[in-house]
């Protein structure tokens, strides 16, 4: 059903889900949400399945009108959302009335935000996914980023239980900084680098360059030297792989990465830390640290527990208290509620 009309889309706003899986062996990139934590939490806060399609925006949130009542949640970058001009909280579900307008101020921290709508965004499945893959112009809304005037459909939710507003416990809300410590597992081709080069890689600060996008983050910092050549016989590229081409500057391969490539990969970012990377902006800095497969898996399990908790026994928002105040014969309604203020 027509639910949202885009008034101003922002520079890069697309429809994404968990990505197009199962076709990488044919050369098909996965695409999907860049920050899978924020994306998944947004869906769970509105009672969706964790793979439902949502809106991903970059740098600036979209201005949109709701054509019917909806339940939404905004997560990810601290994007200063407003509904009908009033600031609203992120990381919790919100009831939005037909005719309301959501808009965003400028980003305070982070880079990418997610807007999930109860029911999930209704666009056709292409090869099993609703994710937009811009380079092949497929998925999402006609394979492109959202534009002014677009009308987005949302599925009717199959869940008939009255919805209670949900909130992510405050201590679980990520804090995005301009510097991130990123855990990596060395390999699969770390043996093609001198030990000193690996030390350089693990002890230096790398800066995110403006040549960073959904395909990959190109970093700038001390040169990482190969033993002989940077070239390998092309092989598969996992999400988060850190390629080092001949110039010695690392590239972190992200959602829209090509499936195969011929540059040596010094290390791979662990899954849960990809959420931090995808919130970094050009000029932000990364320090890599080495970790183990076991620790990486424990982090994935811990993250999964958060999702399970949100799914099965979500914390609900304290209901607001409504007071009627009469001043000089005029009647006012005052709503008092606990707000979810960030930064405390």
């Amino acid at each position: 059903m027509d639910t949202i009309r885009i008034i101003e889309p922002g520079p890069l706003t697309t429809i994404q889900d968990k990505g197009r899986k199962g076709y990488q062996r044919f050369g098909m990139p996965v695409a999907g949400a860049m920050d899978l934590f924020s994306y998944t939490v947004a869906n769970l806060l509105v009672g969706n399945n964790d793979g439902d399609a949502a809106i991903e925006f970059t740098l600036q949130g979209p201005k949109m009108e709701f054509l019917k009542n909806a339940v939404i949640a905004v997560t990810g970058a601290d994007a200063a959302p407003f509904i009908d001009g009033k600031p609203v909280a992120m990381w919790q579900s919100l009831f939005v009335k037909k005719g309301s307008i959501i808009s965003f101020g400028s980003l305070k921290t982070g880079l990418r935000g997610y807007i999930a709508v109860r029911g999930g965004i209704d666009v056709p499945l292409v090869m099993g996914s609703r994710s937009t893959y811009l380079r092949a112009k497929l998925g999402g809304l006609d394979g492109r980023k959202l534009a002014s005037g677009d009308v987005i459909k949302v599925y009717e939710t199959s869940n008939s239980v009255p919805f209670k507003e949900r909130i992510l416990p405050k201590h679980l809300i990520p804090r995005y900084k301009n510097e991130a410590e990123i855990r990596v597992i060395l390999g699969p081709q770390d043996e093609l680098f001198e030990n000193e080069s690996i030390d350089v890689f693990l002890s230096s600060m790398y800066e995110v360059t403006p040549q960073s996008d959904r395909m990959g983050y190109r970093l700038k910092g001390p040169i990482i030297e190969h033993k002989e050549s940077a070239d390998i016989i092309s092989d598969g590229i996992p999400l988060g792989a850190i390629q080092v081409p001949g110039h010695g500057q690392p590239i972190i391969m992200l959602a829209d990465r090509q499936t195969t490539g011929g540059y040596a990969k010094i290390a791979t970012v662990i899954s849960v830390d990809l959420n931090k990377i995808t919130q970094l902006k050009p000029g932000d800095k990364i320090k890599f640290t080495k970790t183990t497969l076991e620790e990486a898996r424990e982090a994935i399990i811990a993250q999964h527990k958060i999702f399970e908790e949100l799914k099965t026994k979500p914390k609900t928002v304290q209901p607001a208290k409504l007071y009627r105040i009469v001043v000089s014969g005029k009647e006012f309604f005052v709503k008092v509620e606990e707000i979810n203020q960030s930064g405390c």
Binding site: K21, Q24, R25, I233, D235, G236, R297, H304
Partner: peptide, 23 residues
């Protein structure tokens, strides 16, 4: 095992760590 990418001389086997331990 979620998917496998075969290339010239190798395969990248992608898996769900919540279902199977890498080792």
């Amino acid at each position: 095992v979620e998917e496998v990418i075969p290339t010239y001389r190798s395969l990248l086997v992608l898996y769900d760590p919540l279902v199977i331990n890498g080792m």
